[in-house]
Design a protein around this nucleic acid. Structure first.
Length: 354
DNA sequence: AAATCCTCCAACCGCACATCA
DNA sequence: GTGATGTGCGGTTGGAGGATT
């Protein structure tokens, strides 16, 4: 029952093609075409199975094949087509002249897939990976940080600091990812979840800009931490710039010189980050033109009823009655006493979980 | 310099479907 | 209607070559 394998002939060569085989195949097809792939190898004097000949021709020897790197335009097109067609590589290749399905498939698996993952897009569903995915690594990070924290020598403190900074960095990256829409075709389900789907309210570029701003903040904080770790090892407390130092009334007792960050408002609406200990400034941090507030968040709840804009406002402090409220709600300030990643997770509620 | 690891991609494999006798 | 055959497609593999240790 069933069909016989295509390449069941004994002594049929497999593996890479030689230049001589290529030449034979090309010359034969140019002269006679390829009406029957099964007959072709015999007639062309090739010790290959028809299937192998077809593959070699369609994927490599065909004269209209485009070689070389994929352009950005091609990349975009592939991603776009993949989001609607899935792994239908042959259909995708129809839209990219000169590219074979095999080439596109390989390029997808080796480059584009990873690229999407890096920017927080699930390459299968083309949905943003949820913050919960990103945050799933936090327990291990925290465990590592706690373990390091229990050791008592300067080097361990430095390591602990580093783990702490990394954990916070991951956390903020996760939140930024959560708050920002994709540059790709709208990821409707995730966008709807976050209430980001309504057109006109959020412009992608606008949000991307905010993303950059927030990333700048995060990276800046990370840089501060690393800088501090090198010079004076000790725990780092990442404090949001808009939280006045007075609002951090319970500095962690074990931290002798907690690094504090404040902001100076600039006339253009941006702010400059200032490390009150070192005096180091980081200009350009900005919470420009956030949508108008209609509530002041006392805690963070990302759901259609309590949109991320509220959180963003809280985070940036432009409209909250107390500038610090948004970030305080996130518990980003006091790492050693009250700080709890679980609390943050608890504060982020998903509409479809209820 | 050697060993090991990693990445990439051409080629293979097996299945599904279309066609034909 | 059924089985044999040919072709197309998507997933997977193996090895070459580069990077890292």
């Amino acid at each position: 029952m069933g069909r016989s394998p295509c390449c069941d002939e004994i002594h049929v060569k497999k593996g890479p093609w030689t230049a001589e085989e290529d030449k034979k195949l090309v010359e034969y097809i140019q002269l006679h075409g390829h009406r029957s792939w099964r007959e072709l190898p015999k007639k062309a004097g090739l010790n290959r199975c028809g299937k192998s000949c077809r593959l070699r021709w369609t994927n490599y020897l065909r004269p209209d094949i485009k070689r070389g790197n994929f352009s950005e335009e091609e990349e975009r097109l592939i991603v776009q087509l993949h989001s609607t067609l899935g792994n239908k590589w042959s259909q995708i290749s129809m839209h990219l002249p000169g590219r074979t399905d095999n080439e596109i498939k390989n390029y997808w698996n080796t480059h584009l897939r990873k690229k999407l993952l890096r920017v927080g897009i699930d390459p299968v569903t083309h949905q943003r990976t949820t913050n919960l995915d990103l945050l799933s690594s936090l327990p291990s990070l925290l465990a590592a940080a706690a373990k390091l924290g229990s050791l008592a020598n300067p080097l361990d403190d430095a390591l602990r600091l580093h783990a702490d900074v990394v954990a916070r960095y991951q956390m903020l990256k996760g939140l930024i990812t959560l708050m920002t829409p994709s540059v790709l075709p709208p990821n409707t389900e995730a966008m709807n979840r976050l209430g980001l789907a309504s057109p006109g309210r959020y412009q992608v570029n606008d949000l991307l800009q905010r993303n950059h701003q927030l990333e700048g903040l995060v990276n800046g904080s990370l840089a501060f931490g690393q800088d501090r770790m090198l010079s004076t090892p000790g725990p780092l407390s990442l404090v949001h710039p808009n939280i006045p130092s007075s609002s951090h009334a319970s500095p962690v007792s074990r931290i002798p010189h907690e690094m504090m960050m404040m902001t100076k408002s600039n006339s253009d609406g941006s702010s400059t980050l200032i490390d009150s200990n070192s005096g180091i400034t980081t200009p350009g941090f900005s919470c420009l033109d956030m949508p108008t507030a209609h509530s002041t968040p006392s805690s963070v709840s990302v759901s259609p009823e309590n949109e991320p804009a509220d959180f963003m406002q809280g985070a940036c402090g432009t409209n909250a009655s107390t500038p610090s409220q948004g970030w305080e709600g996130l518990n980003l300030g006091e790492p050693d006493e009250d700080f709890s990643w679980k609390d943050i997770l608890d504060q982020i509620s998903w509409a479809d979980e209820s």
